[in-house]
Design a protein around this nucleic acid. Structure first.
Lengths: 96, 96
DNA sequence: ATAAACAAGTTTATGATATAAACTAAAATT
DNA sequence: AATTTTAGTTTATATCATAAACTTGTTTAT
């Protein structure tokens, strides 16, 4: 009746990150920070977790001389997101 | 862009509890336990939290001689559930 | 009648998690 | 040259979800 929710995605910040990345080609650290309102530290930790799970890829490069971290959702991450959403919807029925 | 999610409801078990209670007049402890698959301990803790927040009411009585705990969603809980669902949906767009 | 098993929970302990605070290193600004 | 800003990472803390252990009382079996 209530399917298990992927704990990696059932987290406010990680879900927001994935939700953003699902809609764009890629996004850098600061864009994610702006959009989510997260602190740098929290964001850093959470993208690492998503990357370790293979849900996103993180690329470190430079924009001019400044470091630049770019994130991209993987196909595995996209799939995980879809099934998370599907599962979650089973919890929301009565809530209109 | 990403509204804050009520942390009381953004929990797998508590969300399942509220989701059930939103659809029925009332439910007793064991029914919730069966439907959610939760352990007694976990369920006990989580309904207490929901009750402390005023999202549900807990009534203790007896069925014959055996103790019986009945839960019911409050109007405040119903409202919280609705706005949680509304908020959550903003996170799910791209996930189909 | 009494011991064993079961019912319905509650309390306590533990391990994971989210988050913030403190820190690092380099670049840009004054 | 000193200060501030950028772009993060690492560490610490406080909360949380969950399970394990316990409690209280009731059936059931001997």
């Amino acid at each position: 009746m209530f399917p298990k929710l992927d704990p990696l995605l059932h987290s406010e910040l990680r879900l927001a990150i994935i939700s953003i990345l699902a809609g764009v080609e890629e996004a850098d650290f600061n864009y994610l920070k702006e959009q989510t309102g997260a602190s740098s530290g929290n964001l850093s930790v959470q993208i690492d977790k998503l990357a370790e799970a293979g849900y996103i890829s993180i690329e470190k490069g430079f924009k001019g001389k400044m470091p630049r971290t770019t994130c991209k959702i993987t196909s595995s991450g996209m799939e995980a997101f879809r099934s998370y959403v599907k599962a979650l919807k089973k919890y929301l029925v009565a809530g209109k």
